[in-house]
Structure formats: C-alpha cells, structure tokens
C-alpha cells in the first residue's frame, strides 16, 4: 500500500493475534486501569483542577438531562453529518479522478500532502469571512479537514490497481462512471474504508473546532463557554462524551476495515 502512510499514522502493523476471550478481558483491564489512573491523578492534583471520574459522570448526566443539550447535540450532529457526507463523496470523486489519470495524480499529490499537513485552523478567519457565522462555516471547516485524507487514500488505492482492470473496462466499452461504479470502487473498497475512517475522525475534529470559533450553538460552543468560565467539570464531562462516541465509532469502522482487508485478494 505505497504512499498511504503519507497520511496514515493510525493503521499499525497488526499485533500478533491472541485468543479472543483474553483479548476482550485485556481491553476491559485497560479501561479499568485508565479509570484508576484518572482517579489517582485527580487525588494527587486536586479535584478542582482534575475532577474525579464519578463527579465527571454525574455532571455529564446532568448536562444530558438538560433540555438545552438536545438542541446543541442536534446542531453538532447535523453539521457533522453534512460535512461528513460532503467530505466522503467529494474526497472519493477527487481520489478516483486523480487515481485514474496518472499525470494529474502526480501533479496533485504533493499539493494534497502539503494541504493535509498545514495547520488548517489558521484558515478560520477566511472561512468566517466567506461563509459568515453559523452552520455553513462549521460544515466548511469539517469538510476542509476531512476531504483531503479521503482523496489521498482513494487516489493511492486506484493507482495501485492492476492495469488489467482498466483494460477490461475499455474492452467492455464502459463509460467512466460505469468503470468507477462497477470496477474501481469494488476493487478498492478496503482502502476506501481506511480513508473514510481517517476522514471521519478529522471531519469530527474540524466540525468541533469550527463550532468553538464560529457558532453560538453546538457541543463545541458549550466547550468554549465552559472554558471561558473555567468550568473544568463541564469540560471534562463533554470531553468524556466526545471521546467515548469517537472511540466507539472508530472501533466499528476499524473492525470493518480489518475485515475487508483480510477478505481482499492479494494484488
């Protein structure tokens, strides 16, 4: 999978497999150890600076019971969902086009890599000036974070396809759209899912950062408000919520990713 690691620090060479039951028990142990360290750190540093797990959970319960919360969560969900769809479809289209046409890909790759690795948060004034305050700025922020890794992954996957696929498409006189839908996408689906996984994570990050700056609503806004009033308990509670959701979503995508890679024929 040449080049994919240009953007992907996340897929590790898979750990040697162990029995399934102990793996589950070990994961539980890790979570317990994590909570224990958190509790211990809270005792040492002080409850006012690092709230304890139980207090954080209780605050999270209180926040979620509040009627305002569902409005904020819905706002974030809507912005994130829209940004995700745009980033995934846009990245897929860009990646397919650049992957299928070799010269365009060569021209574009360094540009994409450079765009991927600059601190895009710097662009927030520009996004705000172009889109104004509100949901479209948040969506734009999510999209600029998520679209590039999806494009790079898709491009590299299409590039490493064997020429025989393209020759077959030509022999059957498929249109470019048909070639993409019936040959290229099915052949590269494992890599596309890897790209989606990274795109998902970065779109979430981008949307939240966008909310922190460019919004009066949403979970990012709640975070920034808590930050300004030095309400550490609320910050920790929201952080816990986001981390749990992101980890669960990522774990689902990861297992899909690994399943597809295992099933894929060696090229």
């Amino acid at each position: 999978m040449h080049g994919a690691a240009d953007v992907e620090p996340v897929v590790t060479a898979e750990a040697p497999p162990g029995p399934r039951s102990t793996a589950l028990a070990d994961t539980t142990l890790v979570i317990i150890a994590f909570v224990a360290i958190w509790q211990l750190a809270s005792w040492i540093i002080g409850r006012d600076i690092l709230p304890a797990p139980v207090a954080t959970l209780r605050r999270l319960g209180a926040i979620m019971a509040d009627e305002d919360f569902s409005r904020h969560a819905w706002e974030t969900g809507r912005a994130f969902g829209t940004a995700l769809v745009i980033a995934l479809l846009g990245g897929l289209a860009i990646g397919l086009a650049l992957g299928a046409h070799r010269l365009s890909g060569e021209v574009a790759e360094p540009i994409l890599v450079a765009l991927y690795s600059i601190p895009k948060i710097t662009l927030y004034p520009v996004i705000l000036l172009l889109f104004g305050l509100g949901i479209s700025a948040k969506i734009a922020f999510g999209v600029i974070h998520g679209i590039i890794p999806v494009a790079i992954f898709t491009m590299n996957a299409v590039r490493s396809l064997r020429g025989v696929y393209f020759r077959a498409a030509k022999a059957m006189r498929l249109s470019p759209l048909q070639t993409a839908a019936t040959i290229i996408i099915p052949a590269t689906i494992p890599e596309i899912v890897s790209g989606f996984r990274l795109g998902f994570a970065l779109t979430l990050l981008g949307t939240l950062i966008g909310e922190m700056f460019a919004s009066q609503r949403g979970i990012g806004y709640m975070l920034v408000k808590a930050m300004e009033t030095n309400d550490v308990l609320t910050v920790m509670a929201l952080a816990l919520l986001l981390i749990t959701l992101a980890t669960i979503a990522s774990a689902i995508l990861l297992s899909l990713d690994r399943k597809l890679h295992k099933r894929a024929l060696p090229t």
Partner: peptide, 24 residues
Amino acid sequence: RLRRALDPFLASYYAVPTFVFYPV
C-alpha cells in the same frame, strides 16, 4: 499482550478531539 490490549485504543486515538483537553 499489553500491545494487543491497547491496539484498538491506539487505532482510534486520532478520532478523539484531543484538543478539548487544552482548557484542562
């Protein structure tokens, strides 16, 4: 063994907006 147990967490680390800890 520890690596196996941590593997799913390492793989989803970048899905977490680490940024939220800045105020802490």
